[in-house]
Amino acid sequence: MQRIDVESSEIWDYSLEHEDELSKNQHLMAENDDYGMEVWLTMANGSPELIVECDGNEIYREDIFNEKDAKRTADRIYDDYLSIKAIETMTDSEDKTVYIEDESEDEYDDEQMLIDEREEEIDAAVRDLVNIVSDTGCYNLTDEAVDDLKEHFLEYMHRKLGISIYRPMYLEDADTGEDYFTEYPYDDMVFEDDNPIYKQDKN
């Protein structure tokens, strides 16, 4: 039976109120005994994360970044792992790639909206950064320039600094031609390793 101890709309505030405890221990947010599923909250890595366990084994985790994202992520996790959908979810591929043909139209629309909103947030952050660091201001960046800066910023943050990046995306499977929902860094992402920034220091 499904039991929700902390509603999705309350998870962000809960993480702030219990930050010290969550940095040392996981707190149970919800569970369904029928499927052996539990959803836990932790801040062991310095930021809130939702963790899904099945029969005591971790099977999925996802960072949350703000109040809106926390509710949206928790709603999806509660739905995917605590309802009858858990059976379908557990039969997906190990990397949790979910193909559009296995989703309802509403789910696809929700995920596409999530992608669009996140891209807008990242684009705005890139423009703000450029405007702040430029001594003259730079308010006429083309979309192509923003995309180029965005890719370089995210790659540097991920590869050089080890910072977790939240940037969901729909990509096309090269073998099947089907679109699938995934998160950064994408499985088929190829970095240009000749960039000296990412060369390993042998000293």
Score class of each variant (00 low, 15 high):
84 I>Y: 05
109 D>I: 01
67 E>S: 04
121 E>P: 03
112 Q>F: 05
30 A>H: 03
54 C>P: 01
23 S>E: 04
47 S>N: 10
72 R>E: 11
49 E>I: 02
82 L>N: 06
80 D>C: 06
21 E>T: 11
118 R>I: 15
55 D>Q: 08
61 R>Y: 09
64 I>A: 12
96 K>Q: 02
42 T>H: 11
75 D>R: 00
33 D>Y: 12
60 Y>E: 12
132 I>N: 05
65 F>L: 12
53 E>F: 00
39 V>R: 06
48 P>A: 15
137 G>V: 08
15 S>R: 09
33 D>E: 15
74 A>S: 14
75 D>G: 01
105 E>F: 07
67 E>P: 00
84 I>K: 11
13 D>L: 10
62 E>L: 11
138 C>F: 13
28 L>Y: 03
113 M>D: 13
39 V>K: 06
31 E>F: 15
81 Y>W: 15
41 L>D: 06
22 L>N: 03
81 Y>L: 04
60 Y>L: 15
132 I>S: 05
73 T>H: 05
22 L>D: 03
44 A>T: 06
63 D>V: 07
48 P>S: 08
120 E>M: 09
106 D>R: 06
38 E>K: 08
121 E>A: 15
75 D>P: 01
113 M>E: 14
86 A>R: 06
100 I>D: 05
138 C>S: 12
21 E>R: 11
55 D>P: 00
61 R>V: 02
113 M>T: 14
87 I>M: 14
119 E>V: 03
29 M>Q: 05
71 K>Y: 02
65 F>Y: 11
23 S>C: 01
87 I>A: 13
105 E>S: 10
109 D>P: 00
66 N>Q: 03
75 D>C: 02
22 L>R: 07
109 D>R: 06
40 W>V: 05
63 D>T: 09
24 K>R: 10
75 D>F: 01
76 R>W: 05
125 A>M: 08
99 Y>R: 13
61 R>I: 02
55 D>C: 03
31 E>N: 07
12 W>M: 05
43 M>Q: 14
122 I>E: 14
47 S>W: 08
36 G>Q: 11
100 I>Y: 03
106 D>N: 05
